[in-house]
Each structure stands twice: as structure tokens, then as C-alpha cells.
Nucleic acid binder design. Structure first.
Lengths: 192, 192
DNA sequence: ATTTTTCGTTGACCAAAGTCAATGGTTTTT
DNA sequence: AAAAACCATTGACTTTGGTCAACGAAAAAT
């Protein structure tokens, strides 16, 4: 357990064995089955989940019942509703497992205490969130300035693993498209 | 000088006078005139700029020459190309001043050294970027799940100051719309 | 093994947004 | 004060993507 987590961690910030043990004492492990919720709309998001194995997604539901996928999280990624996690307000999104998964969980309390006791942990968090911010900003910019053909091809190139493991209508939802439109985009790309 | 900066800072993280002085010694001030560049495509982004006064924007240019505004930064906000700042790679966006502005600048080297010497500084950075991440995520979600009417009204409500100080075609660009479309949206909203 | 459900694709049609062009009002520059 | 540049709006037309409905294939449930 924790292999993927600490591998990811030490890629960003080096750790002594003592620090590793300290951090470990604040973590917990959670297994979750496909289709099971990690968070439901209205709950306060109390943890950040790091994915050791499997894949999760977060999404919002419109009144009409339509899903809008915010994020996919395969192995080596984290998932949470940071807005709710940081503010303590109820979340307006759902998180569930797309595959049977294993997670490393850090609660808000644990994270705050670790931040004080262990500068390396806070540094890791900063790098984690900075990277997430940068990639979100690229996503917004692509939405505003690239064709959906380009955006779909970028998605395939950037997340080939996700593309293979997830049904296409979820990718459409992530891109803000109807499944029919994504299907037509694929045909156009294939046939040239 | 630095009033707005430290006001913003201490809202998020408390500071002793000693810490304040230490941090001050790593900052510098920059004045920039309307239309002047802070960063151009191809440059490496070497600083984070905090806006004391005035307003800046970051944007990308498509081959066709069309601008796509990534972000506005009025007083109390920071602006940078974090991707380039963190990686040291050349930026693919421009930053310029929409109004005559005064900035507090932190270079990458200063930021790294401060992070080591002053935990409060690193904590501030974490909060700053976390907040930016949360608001970006809300933006992506709004793009994928709300009508442009709703998005425009949200923009007006969330950033009334920006809406008043910036020409409408820039807001259109920020929202990924043509100026004509935004104009029609406004008419529809007004006349209902 | 058979029945359901889920998925991706396709067609026909409709609605939304982009493009192009023109206009008139501001603001800036000179 | 006049000229130039910029800006928002509007109309006509085109393109793009959404919606609805149907179909067949594959996967999951029974």
C-alpha cells in the first residue's frame, strides 16, 4: 500500500524515512467498487483522495439530470472537490468510481496538521495543486480557442489510457459535447 | 507601496513584522503603462505579478491573429503564466496592461528562497493557488453546463468592477464568444 | 441462455453561434 | 477642431452543434 502515492510524492519532493513514516500515520486506505459514490452533492468534501489503482470521476448534475464530468482521475491522480474541502461548504458535485479502485485518503484535519508539522508535505501539496491549476488553465484556453476536432485529438494524445478505459459518452460529457456530436467528430477525423 | 499586497497576504496568512520585512526584501515594484507588455509569447515567465493598482490581462494569439483572453487581473489579484514560471519553458501567452498599473513582483528565485526561509510565504502561495484553482474549475464547469446568458450574468455579478472597466469585446473574448454574440446576449437579457 | 441495459452510430431537423458587412457613436490622436 | 481609430450594435446568411428518434451491437444482469 501507498507505493504509488509515495512514488508520486517523492517525484515532486524528496522525503526522509522519518518524514515518510510521519505522513503515513496520517493517511488511510479505502477500497471502492465500481459505481460506488465517494462524495454526493450536498455532502461536505472531507478528504482528498489519491488514486492508487482504478479510476474515478467527478461530475455535476443539472436539474434536467444531465451529467457534466468535471474530471477523471486514474492511477497517480488525486480527486476531490477542493472548493468544498477548503471552505467546508457542501459540495455541488458527485464523485464516483468508474472502476473498482483503491484510494489513499487524507482528511482536511490530517492535511492541516501535516502542513504544520512537515514542510515537505505542504510543499508537495503546493506542487500538486499548481500542476492541476496549470493543466486546467490549458483546458480552458483550448475550449476557447481550438476546434473540437483539435481538442479531441489533444485529449487522445494527452490521456490515451483514459480514452481506452472510459465510454465515449463520458469523454463527450467531459468536453461539453453531446455523444452524437463526438461520434460525428470521430467519423470526420477517421475519414480523411 | 505593498499595502494592497500585504493586506491580501495577511487576510490569508498572519505575519509578524519580522516576516513582513523578510518578505519585503524579496519583492520589487514595477509600474507599467496601458498597452505595455509584461510578458510576450516566447519569453520565459520569470515572475509572478501582484496587482496593487490598475488592471492587466493575459491572452493567447491564434495564427489568425485572434486574441483569446485567459484572465483579467484587477487590484488584489495576481497574474503570471504559471506554466512557464514553474517549468522554465517559453510562454505561449501575452500579458499586458489594460490600464496604467502598479505591480509587486516576485521572481522565481525569490519565491523559491522565500518558500524555504519562510513557511508563511509558502502557505500563502498554497492558498493563493488553491483559490485560483477552485475558481478555474467553476469556470470550466459553467462553460460545460450553463447557457451563455447565465454565464454572462454570473460574470457581471462576480466581477462587476471588471465589467465596468473593460471593453465588451474583451469580455466576449474571455468567454470564448464573438463580440456580436455577446452584444445579442445583452439585448436578450435587457429586453425580457 | 436469454433478456435487459448500455453504447455508439446515423439521419432528419432545429436552434444557437459565427461570419461578413454596414452603421453610428465614442474616444483618442494629431 | 478635425481626422482616425475603436467600439457596440444590427441585419443577412452560413456553419456548427444539439435534439429526437431509430437501429444494431455489445455487455451485463437474470
Amino acid at each position: 500500500m501507498y507505493e504509488v502515492y509515495f512514488h508520486h510524492f517523492t517525484q515532486k519532493v524528496p522525503l526522509t524515512e522519518a518524514e515518510k513514516d510521519l505522513i503515513k500515520s496520517y493517511l488511510s486506505v479505502k477500497k471502492i467498487r465500481k459505481r460506488q459514490y465517494l462524495l454526493q452533492e450536498g455532502d461536505v468534501c472531507k478528504s482528498i483522495a489519491f488514486v492508487e489503482k482504478g479510476m474515478l470521476r467527478s461530475y455535476t448534475l443539472k436539474d434536467s439530470g444531465t451529467e457534466h464530468i468535471v474530471q477523471f482521475a486514474p492511477e497517480g491522480w488525486f480527486i476531490s472537490d477542493l472548493g468544498s474541502f477548503l471552505s467546508g461548504e457542501p459540495s455541488n458535485c458527485h464523485i464516483d468510481a468508474i472502476e473498482d479502485s483503491e484510494l489513499v485518503m487524507v482528511t482536511r484535519a490530517a492535511s492541516d496538521e501535516l502542513s504544520l508539522k512537515c514542510p515537505a508535505y505542504e510543499r508537495y501539496l503546493l506542487k500538486l495543486i499548481s500542476a492541476a491549476y496549470v493543466s486546467l488553465q490549458q483546458r480552458v484556453n483550448a475550449i476557447n480557442s481550438h476546434s473540437i476536432e483539435d481538442r479531441y485529438q489533444d485529449f487522445l494524445q494527452k490521456y490515451p489510457d483514459i480514452a481506452l478505459r472510459v465510454p465515449q459518452h463520458m469523454i463527450a460529457s467531459y468536453m461539453g459535447l453531446s455523444p452524437e456530436t463526438l461520434s460525428r467528430v470521430r467519423r470526420r477525423i477517421a475519414g480523411n
